[in-house]
Design a binder for these strands. Structure first.
Lengths: 207, 207
DNA sequence: GCCGAAGCGTGACTTCGGTCACAGTATCCT
DNA sequence: AGGATACTGTGACCGAAGTCACGCTTCGGC
C-alpha cells in the first residue's frame, strides 16, 4: 500500500496506525459509494481513482458537485460518520477506485492523538465547503454558457489533460440542462476557436 | 454572561474555560462581521441576535445563504481561522448582535481537551454543509416561485413568527431576482390564500 | 395638509433556455 | 455489407423570468 506516497503530510507513525485500523476497499467503475439515506460505518480515504459526487433532485436529476481524487477524503462521510447521520449526496466511482476505509469509532482517537490528522480533516472540510460555494456562484450568478465554460475547465483540470471523453448528453445531465442547449453552446465555443469538438471528445484549445 | 443557557450542551468546566479565553463583542444592526478577503483572528459564537451570511457576486450582487442565530457558531470563521485562510462570504448583523470571540490559537487545545467542543464544531460544520446543499437544491432544481416559497418558509421559521417585515426589493436581492418578478409571484401566493401582503409586511396563512 | 420618497402593481417587450421534431453521421455488431 | 444504435446538428416554438415604463398608494417630515 502506498499510503505514504498518497499522503506525504502524514508521519510514519500515523501511516502505520492507519494501516492497522483501516481496510483497503475497491470499487468498479460505476459503483455507488454513497447514496442518499445511507448510514456510514467508515470514513474513506481515496488512494486511487476518481469519485464523482452529485446532488440528486426530486425526480432523479443529477447535478454535478465535485470530484474526489487520490489524496482526498470524503468530507461527508467524516461528518456524517461521527454524527451517525445519513448522507444527502450520491457518490459514484468514475474509474476503478481504491480507498482506505477507516471505521468511524477510530475518528475521535485519531483527531485527539494525531495533529496531522486533525489538520487534514479540517482542510478537507474547508476545501469541500469552498467547492460548494463556487458551485453556488456558478448557478446563481452565471448563465449557461458561463457555467459550461466553468464545467469544462474543471474537467480539464481534474483529468490533467487537454482532451476529455464525454458526450453532450452527459454534460447536460451534470449541469441539469438539455443536450440541444449544450450542443449549441459547444458549437459557439468551437467557432470561437476555444475548443474543438469531435464525437465523444472535446479538446481544449484556448480556454 | 449567559453562556450556559445558550450552550446547554457544554459542561461547567468548558463554559468556565470559554469565559476565560473568550471576549464578548457586540455589533450594531448593519455591521459587517466578515467580508471576502478578510483574515480571522477569532472564531465567533453567537450569543444573541441574527447574522445573515451571503455570497457576493462579481458585480456586487448578494445572494442569501443562511442565518446564524443564538447558539450557532460561524463554521467559516472556525475553518478559515485554523487555516489562516481568507473568507469567501459576507456576514452582516441583522439586529444588535452579541458574540463571544475565541482567539484562534485556542482552537487546537479546545478540540483536544474538550470532547463537547469537538462535537460542537463537527456538528456546526455538518449543519452548514447541509444548508449549502439545500441552497444548491433550490437554485438548481427549482423555479422562481418554488425558491420564493422556500425563502419565505425559512424566514418564518428563523424569526419564529407568522409575520415578517421585508420589502419586495429585499427579497429580490436575496434571491438574485428583480422586484417585479417577486411582486408578481407574491400576488399569486396571496391569490391562493397562502400569504397576505401589506406594505413592508408578509403574513403566513397556509404555507 | 402637502410634498417627496419609498414601496408596490401592471402591461409590453425581450431574452435565454427548454422542448419538439427530424435529419444527418459515426460506430458497433453479426 | 447492412442494420441498429448511439451521438450530434438545426430550425421552430414556448414559457419563465428579466427589463422598461409608468402610475398608484402609503408614509413620514415639515
Amino acid at each position: 500500500m502506498k499510503l505514504d506516497e498518497t499522503f506525504p503530510q502524514f508521519d510514519p507513525e500515523l501511516i502505520q496506525h492507519l494501516e492497522k485500523i483501516g481496510q483497503v476497499v475497491t470499487y468498479e467503475e460505476g459503483d455507488m459509494l454513497m447514496r442518499p439515506g445511507q448510514y456510514f460505518k467508515n470514513s474513506l480515504l481515496i488512494l486511487d481513482g476518481r469519485v464523482k459526487l452529485y446532488r440528486e433532485g426530486e425526480e432523479g436529476e443529477e447535478f454535478f458537485l465535485y470530484y474526489l481524487e487520490k489524496g482526498n477524503a470524503c468530507a461527508l462521510s467524516m461528518i456524517c460518520a461521527t454524527k451517525n447521520e445519513t448522507s444527502e449526496i450520491k457518490a459514484r466511482a468514475m474509474s476503478p477506485v481504491t480507498a482506505l476505509a477507516i471505521p468511524i469509532q477510530h475518528m475521535d482517537g485519531l483527531m485527539r492523538d494525531h495533529r496531522q490528522w486533525y489538520y487534514f480533516v479540517l482542510e478537507t472540510y474547508r476545501a469541500r465547503f469552498g467547492e460548494l460555494l463556487e458551485v453556488i456562484d456558478q448557478v446563481v450568478f452565471h448563465s449557461m454558457d458561463q457555467k459550461l465554460e466553468f464545467y469544462l475547465k474543471r474537467q480539464f483540470t481534474s483529468l490533467q489533460s487537454d482532451k476529455i471523453s464525454i458526450t453532450h448528453q452527459e454534460i447536460a445531465d451534470d449541469l441539469n440542462s438539455s443536450r440541444e442547449v449544450i450542443s449549441r453552446l459547444l458549437k459557439k465555443l468551437e467557432s470561437q476557436k476555444r475548443i474543438s469538438i469531435s464525437r465523444n471528445e472535446i479538446t481544449r484549445l484556448n480556454l
